[in-house]
């Protein structure tokens, strides 16, 4: 057996000669280059190009490759863009908060269940992730629209006299649609943070005479909230970067920062300025991610 393995391994130095170590070094370097090079080429190089782009300008619709801070100065100097930026931050926070509240309710209800029903409802709450995004926006527009199902329902219930235009082509419409589309993204992380609450703590609370309500307030909620907030922050990032939902249900009033960036790559055709706006978005997202990381680290230490 030993003879066989030696012969098959081909590691016979007398035959391979002196060239082997050199060839092996070459192979290893090529491999390392491929392993680090391909992801860098696919991900880091484009990101770097995009950052560089934000420091260029356009003259007569053509990109001029000279370093300038003009795009950033433009962003800071124009109140319109600043207004859209803060408005979008506000919108994304509301979407994140609603997804935290409703996501927590769903995740908590599912978490309390046992057996098959639990798995089934968990599946039911993540399946909407696999539904086509455009179809969801389209359907939401039909529901919220002037002739939509929501108005029909409200009129028939006698709550309003005539169909209302309050639900479509404004910020409210964007908010409702985003809240519906992005809610499932929050449910799973919240459920997982509930799962991390140790059963022995629940048992201890019950042994010490805690009623279910007390156990929830004093044990479950404080332990699962940090992870849930991280999930909500993830939703906030998604809402911040979305540009199609506001475009399709927002109309003229529902202008968001994502749309502002997108329009620079479409009709306005000012890529460097669009890139600079996207860098501003990137910085806010990095900030949100850092906050989320700090929350999870803090929760783990406790």
């Amino acid at each position: 057996m030993t003879d066989l393995s030696l012969a098959a391994s081909g590691a016979d130095p007398a035959i391979a000669g002196a060239r082997a170590p050199h060839r092996r070094w070459l192979r290893r370097t090529a491999l390392r280059l491929a392993v680090y090079g391909v992801p860098a080429l696919l991900i880091l190089v484009p990101l770097a190009t995009f950052l560089v782009y934000s420091f260029w300008t356009t003259v007569d619709g053509r990109v001029v490759q000279s370093f300038t801070l003009a795009n950033y100065v433009d962003f800071l100097a124009k109140p319109v863009y600043r207004g859209v930026f803060t408005g979008t931050l506000w919108l994304a926070s509301i979407v994140a908060t609603t997804s935290l509240i409703f996501g927590y309710i769903i995740a908590y209800l599912v978490w309390r269940l046992e057996g098959r029903l639990r798995y089934f409802l968990l599946l039911l709450s993540v399946i909407p992730l696999a539904m086509n995004y455009i179809v969801k926006i389209y359907a939401m527009r039909n529901i919220l629209g002037y002739n939509g199902s929501l108005n029909w329902l409200l009129v028939h219930a006698g709550l309003i006299e005539a169909p209302s235009k309050l639900f479509i082509f404004n910020q409210t419409a964007v908010m409702i649609t985003m809240a519906v589309i992005y809610l499932p993204y929050a449910i799973l992380p919240i459920f997982l943070s509930l799962e991390r609450v140790s059963p022995s703590l629940l048992a201890a609370s019950a042994d010490l005479g805690g009623r279910p309500g007390q156990t929830f307030r004093n044990v479950v909620l404080p332990l699962s909230l940090p992870g849930s907030i991280v999930g909500a922050l993830f939703v906030m990032v998604l809402a911040l970067g979305d540009y199609l939902t506001p475009q399709m249900v927002g109309g003229n009033q529902g202008f968001t920062f994502g749309r502002a960036i997108w329009s620079q790559f479409g009709m306005a055709f000012n890529w460097p300025f669009g890139a600079a706006l996207a860098v501003v978005l990137l910085l806010s997202v990095v900030l949100i991610i850092l906050v989320a990381a700090a929350i999870s680290r803090h929760a783990r230490v406790k």
């Binding site: 991900i43 880091l44 484009p46 990101l47 995009f50 970067g241 994502g258 996207a278 997202v285």
Partner: peptide
């Protein structure tokens, strides 16, 4: 970290980066 970047960053950032590149 690099591989997970496009997963964490907003899609619009990934889209613009690739477009520009």
């Amino acid at each position: 970290f690099v591989i997970f970047l496009p997963f964490v960053l907003p899609a619009i950032i990934t889209g613009i980066s690739l477009l520009v590149a």
